[in-house]
């Protein structure tokens, strides 16, 4: 596959995984939690690196999951002590992130893990870091990881579809029916962590947030059916990835920044023009 092809594929995979998880994220009102986790995975990666002295994908994933779970647990704990939800998130993630930055600055030196990189990603390097797969040949490592993550996410969502639905809509009822609401919450946090770190290399932290939240929010404005929302969100994710890439090439600018901005454009269009929930449609309905 061509260089551009790999980049587009990577970006699409990021768009797909993030936007699919994003649907549950915004319905569960955990958008800012995603923001938090996308920062704290930095700490997870750093610790994983310090412990294993390797930058291998698997170690990063484990570090990320643990960081994500730690974040969720700490936020939950603080909130149960009476701190507002948002403030709890703010305290936990900024502190953990600060610790991560300090560790990088003091212990890690130059090992490819600078803060800038983690925050912004560098998709242009992706096609160069390949691994060899049987039959298929040489494939960028990021593509392999993202594909596996995507398959995993979709499988988990489909397998427990009704449980995700009910725990997002009415956790109290779900608990009374015997569904393990807390377990599913932490399972979900793990999924978010895994998705985040898989996308890290490609688009960086802040822009993972854009992909996680914005396509799903756009889809939310087009449909009243959950299943359709998932599909639309995925489409918007890929659309933003493509549009963002080509805009970046045209303007000669950051690809990840451009993709994030593209998600915003898609959202704006939806916000204004959606026949069901868009502003223009609502204005028309107003009685004369």
């Amino acid at each position: 596959m061509s260089y551009t092809g790999w980049i587009l594929l990577t970006a699409s995979l990021v768009g797909l995984s993030c936007s699919v998880i994003g649907v549950l994220l915004i319905l569960r009102r955990m958008a800012m939690m995603a923001d938090a986790i996308s920062h704290t995975v930095l700490l997870g990666i750093v610790v994983a690196f310090l412990v294993t002295r390797q930058l291998a994908g698997v170690h990063m994933l484990v570090g990320a999951i643990m960081a994500g779970l730690l974040t969720a647990v700490l936020v939950q704990w603080l909130h149960s002590r009476g701190v507002q939800q948002e403030a709890s998130i703010g305290i936990v993630f900024t502190t953990l992130f600060a610790v991560g930055v300090v560790l990088i600055a003091t212990k890690v030196g130059n090992a490819h893990l600078d803060v800038q990189h983690s925050l912004m990603g560098e998709i242009t390097f992706i096609p160069w870091e390949t691994i060899h797969l049987p039959w298929i040949g040489s494939v960028p490592e990021a593509v392999v990881m993202l594909t596996l993550v995507l398959i995993f996410i979709v499988a988990v969502i489909i397998a427990f579809y009704k449980e995700w639905k009910i725990t997002s809509f009415d956790p109290a009822l779900a608990a009374s029916l015997g569904i393990p609401v807390v377990l599913m919450h932490y399972m979900f946090m793990s999924l978010v962590s895994v998705t985040t770190v898989a996308a890290f290399d490609a688009v960086g932290a802040i822009l993972v947030v854009a992909m996680l939240i914005t396509p799903a929010a756009a889809a939310y404005l087009w449909t009243d059916r959950l299943s359709v929302m998932f599909v639309l969100s995925a489409i918007f994710g890929v659309l933003s990835a493509f549009a963002g890439y080509y805009a970046a090439v045209w303007l000669d600018t950051s690809i990840s920044g451009s993709m994030a901005f593209a998600t915003g454009v898609v959202f704006m269009i939806s916000f204004l023009c959606s026949p069901k929930h868009g502003i223009l449609a609502k204005r028309k309905i107003k009685p004369a």
Partner: peptide, 17 residues
């Protein structure tokens, strides 16, 4: 919270661009 997340990341992305 969703709106905040959108503005946060989209504006920042635009800024990076």
């Amino acid at each position: 919270d969703t709106a905040m997340g959108i503005i946060l990341s989209v504006f920042y992305g635009f800024g990076i661009m």
